[in-house]
Design a protein around this nucleic acid. Structure first.
Length: 385
DNA sequence: AGCACA
């Protein structure tokens, strides 16, 4: 890790009547902000809850000199600027006006902005959280489901229990809690480039699949056994993949179980499986298009790019989806698939009581061919399918 | 503790 290069922050800033405040208490109110600044002049505009941690803000004075006064005062003061006892760092903003004081979240729109607290990017995928069904439960129309996610590292504010519980069992065990904060996005139509594990456009079946979908393939096929090698290639305008298992029995189970399935919910990326003539693939150890997991170094490399929850046992990673497999579904073994699991443990699927009493989340009739397991009694499985 | 919704 090099420490050279241009300094990330500039300490010689040109004065601006807009000030940038950081290290604020979480979700510091506008009133608190104004209280701090008003000795130096009237505050004509603010923008609060800025940044990933929502602990930054901008304030705008009508006059440049007032901003200079404030910065100078605290630069030489022995008492730092404080809000709720927390030292606040003040500097000139690199912009000269606050463009939009009104938080977009206040203006209703057809696109929602969902902030998940306490989860890291790798903990959540479009399949795990299963947006479509989850948000349908919140009366969001399918056309409105193209959304953004912002992931926050910190969890500080509790949402209503219902939303929290709705989310909890959809995430890996190591995520202690996850709160959702839902507001309106300023967008009216999201521009989704690829169908991927992080983005989905349900209105456009022709949208290409993310070229890095190889990791998604691994997830799917790992459910049936140790995937040794993968090669993905284009043929006649469609995508084909060779998936190598150690033995025919495993391949056979995977083939039977996955034939006709869609990798993505809603009928996207339908799979058709047949046996390849190959018995041992000769592929590049690690690339966008191919993997050889039998090579130790490459496996490490691959593991680092994999999604942590993919190896969790009985996780909805395989649930609530076209390849939904609640515990006990025949043909869908619930071992940690690749041996890279951080350790087995009971999945959320094994604890229906974890959202006990919450009746809004009854599983809907499944679209998977394994039988009717997911369509059991409402409380027999927390999967949304 | 570091600039505004990918």
């Amino acid at each position: 890790m090099s420490t050279s290069g241009p300094p990330q922050f500039r300490y010689t800033q040109t004065p601006s009547k807009v000030l940038h405040l950081r290290n604020l208490p979480w979700e510091c109110s506008e009133e608190e902000l104004v209280e701090l600044c008003k000795p130096f002049g009237k505050i004509v505009n603010t923008k609060i809850n800025v940044g990933a941690n929502r602990n930054q803000a901008f304030v705008e004075f009508p006059d440049l000199n007032q901003a200079i006064q404030m910065v100078s005062y605290y630069a030489s003061s022995s008492e730092p600027a404080q809000v709720r006892g927390k030292t606040v760092y003040i500097q000139y903003s690199n912009r000269h006006e606050i463009v939009n004081n009104k938080s977009p979240g206040d203006n209703p729109g057809n696109v929602l902005l969902v902030t998940m607290e306490g989860v890291e990017a790798g903990d959540v995928s479009i399949d795990v959280i299963h947006l479509k069904k989850l948000f349908c439960l919140f009366s969001v129309e399918e056309e409105q489901l193209r959304m953004y996610f912002r992931l926050l590292a910190l969890c500080t504010k509790l949402l209503p229990l219902k939303k929290q519980l709705a989310f909890r069992y959809l995430l890996p065990e190591h995520v202690g809690s996850c709160n959702l904060r839902i507001s309106y996005s300023a967008h009216t139509d999201l521009n989704i480039k690829f169908q991927s594990h992080r983005s989905r456009d349900y209105t456009n079946p022709y949208l290409p699949v993310n070229p890095t979908a190889i990791d998604g393939s691994l997830q799917v096929f790992s459910a049936f056994g140790n995937v040794q090698k993968i090669a993905i290639f284009e043929k006649n305008g469609s995508t084909q993949a060779l998936i190598q298992y150690p033995d025919i029995a495993t391949a056979s189970v995977a083939k039977e179980a996955l034939e006709g399935h869609c990798i993505y919910d809603g009928g996207y990326c339908k799979l058709h499986l047949s046996y390849s003539r190959h018995t041992d693939l000769n592929v590049k150890a690690y690339s966008d298009k191919s993997r050889d997991y039998t090579i130790p170094d490459a496996s490490l490399l691959a593991a680092s790019s994999q999604i942590p929850w993919q190896n969790h046992q009985a996780m909805p990673a395989y649930g609530g989806n076209a390849y939904n497999a609640p515990p006990g579904v025949p043909g869908m073994p619930h071992q940690a698939p690749t041996g890279q699991s951080p350790g087995p443990g009971p999945g959320y699927g094994s604890n229906p009581g974890s959202y006990g009493g919450h009746t809004s989340y009854q599983p809907q009739p499944p679209m998977h061919p394994y039988g009717n397991t997911a369509a059991g009694p409402p409380h027999s499985s927390p999967h949304i399918s």
